[in-house]
Amino acid sequence: MANLKEIRNRITSIKSTMQITSAMKMVSAAKLKKAQDAITAMRPYSSKLTELLQNLSATLDSDAGGAYSTQREVSKVLLVAITSNRGLCGGFNSSITKKVIKIIEEKYTNTSVDIFAIGKKGGDVLAKQFSVVERRNDIFDDLTFDNVAAIAEELMELYVDSSYDKIEIVYNQFKNAATQLPQVEQFLPIKPIEGGDAEAVNSDYVFEPTKEEIVEALIPKSLKTQLYKSIRDSFASEHGARMTAMHKATDNATELRDELLLTYNKARQAAITNEILEIVGGAEALKN
């Protein structure tokens, strides 16, 4: 019967785990809907703003973008790693930390690299191997454009004062609840447009004021929007990954519970059979 007691305890424990994972799945599903709507609505705006800025820059002199377009010899790089503050979301956080490590080992072997960690989980892991110069774990407590813009301004200042020659963002792009794609985007300097017809800009738009003034005003806004989109993408990906992970955990717990129930019933049946045999054997002994 001691064995039966142990199985009962395991079944009770698994049922409690199922309740927790099921509740977390429902919470993440509710948060995912809001986060998904936000990033879906923002992507067209962000893409069009970036496209407009790149097209305008292509028609101007190479130094038209000012300090944010200055190409320098890359000797010091800052990687902005966007993860989450909490775990239980499958491989969401580990995919970013692995991506960052791979970038450093393959792309910046002989270059000084620092980490700007947005999210506690990524910062904790990367700090064991690399220099994490700053952590911003509070951004997810109140994820607004103004709060993200303050971080973007800090990054822009680090580039302008030549603290870093290149800044890249590493984050998870939301595709659907089950799929998150690790992405690497160049934040600064502004990446020039690849190919395209620069003359098309002159015929598609009427500029007021001048193109130079528009580019100068658009660049900070575009950079802030780029960072905000990346964090929003990561935020939606986190809830999608957590919902999927908790769904799988609930399914696994259900399967394990069913197996233990079957084992328990078999053991209980065997124990009852043994008791009956002992009673019958005792009765036969008394007859003899």
Rank of each mutant, 00 (worst) to 15 (best):
L88C: 04
A241W: 10
A41S: 15
N274Q: 01
E168G: 00
V100D: 09
I11T: 07
S112Y: 13
G281M: 13
T12E: 14
N3V: 13
K98F: 07
L256A: 14
A38E: 15
R10N: 12
L286Q: 13
S62N: 01
L126H: 04
K266T: 08
V74H: 03
I82E: 04
V113S: 09
K229H: 13
V170F: 04
I11G: 03
C89Q: 03
G65W: 02
R242K: 10
K31F: 07
A149C: 07
S163M: 05
M246W: 01
A245C: 12
D165C: 03
T109P: 02
M1Q: 11
I11W: 05
E275A: 15
L53Q: 00
Q183D: 04
A2R: 08
F235I: 06
K48L: 07
I14K: 03
S47A: 08
E73H: 13
K248R: 14
F145E: 11
R10H: 11
T254Q: 13
S222W: 06
Q36D: 10
D37M: 12
K15P: 00
M24F: 07
E259D: 14
G90L: 10
T273W: 04
L60S: 06
L60M: 06
V100M: 10
K191P: 04
A149M: 06
I7L: 12
T179L: 13
